[in-house]
Design a binder for these strands. Structure first.
Length: 263
DNA sequence: ATGGCAGTTCCTAACTGA
């Protein structure tokens, strides 16, 4: 089973690139973030023609997540609300950042974690609150269901210094600040491990490069797109790789796909 | 230090992203 995650920064702009990528990389599941379109306007047919079933949580202009799957997903739901009480969720489901479904004996959870703008800003507080509620959401999933979990998506956090091209002085930088790193660590403490780090320990491997300053050609990147697995699935994982080919294309997304495989 | 690039919409300016 191969599960990929890719922040496409607008599915309508990236449609042809995603089609071509799927033709060359026929993964079982593709999790997309930042689709930036309402479900009714989502370009479904190019992907359905490739044999995928589409599950979409969309909104206009911002955010938006989707799962493409070769086999139909079961128990698909979006947002935190299906598992948590209204008081806990508050307004968090207004932004479309969560979609999940079951394939085989694995629950896929596709996430687009808030960026947070700047450390100490209102959006940063929103990011921290969102991660706190995410932990409750995932803990509830684990408590209620026997499925293994594959949590993937754009986490907007580089968890360790080796996930950043130049980690020096990043304590106040969004995506690297200690408080948000700790918030993500707290989520992982429920029993999740980073699939990529099972296979690759050195620095220099990234999934996002800023559009500005020729960051990609200088490999000034960040590894912020992750797959987190429950222990049994982590043991079964046989590879996790970053495909930088799409980042080299004209008009690319600023992120590139990451693919995990398990037996 | 700042801003740089890209996508979107209430579209040629302002926002959000990361």
């Amino acid at each position: 089973m191969k599960v990929a995650t890719w922040n496409v920064n607008s599915i309508r702009t990236r449609q042809d690139q995603v089609v071509e990528w799927l033709q060359n990389n026929p993964v079982d599941v593709l999790c997309l973030q930042e689709t930036k379109v309402m479900e009714v306007q989502f370009p479904r047919s190019p992907f359905e023609e490739l044999g995928y079933h589409l599950y979409i949580s969309g909104q206009k202009s911002y955010n938006g997540v989707a799962i493409f799957s070769r086999t139909p997903l079961e128990q698909v739901s979006t947002g935190f609300s299906p598992l948590l009480d209204a008081e806990t969720v508050g307004e968090l489901d207004e932004q479309k950042r969560v979609i999940t479904g079951i394939v085989g004996d694995v629950r896929i959870v596709n996430l687009y974690v808030p960026n947070g703008s700047a450390v100490g800003s209102e959006k940063y507080d929103y990011k921290l609150l969102w991660l706190k509620v995410l932990r409750e959401y995932l803990q509830t999933l684990l408590d209620k269901q026997p499925y293994e979990l594959c949590i993937c998506g754009d986490f907007n956090i580089a968890l360790e210094d080796r996930d950043i091209h130049n980690p020096k002085g990043k304590e106040k930088h969004i995506m690297a600040s200690p408080v948000e790193r700790q918030a993500l660590q707290s989520v992982l403490e429920i029993g999740l491990a980073d699939a990529f780090r099972k296979f690759t320990t050195e620095t220099g491997h990234y999934s996002w490069w800023d559009y500005r300053t020729n960051a990609f050609s200088r490999n000034m990147g960040w590894r912020i797109d992750h797959h987190y697995l429950t222990p049994k699935l982590y043991e079964q994982a046989s590879s996790c790789r970053i495909d930088i080919a799409p980042r080299k294309l004209p008009k690319p997304s600023d992120h590139t796909p990451v693919i995990v495989e398990w037996i």
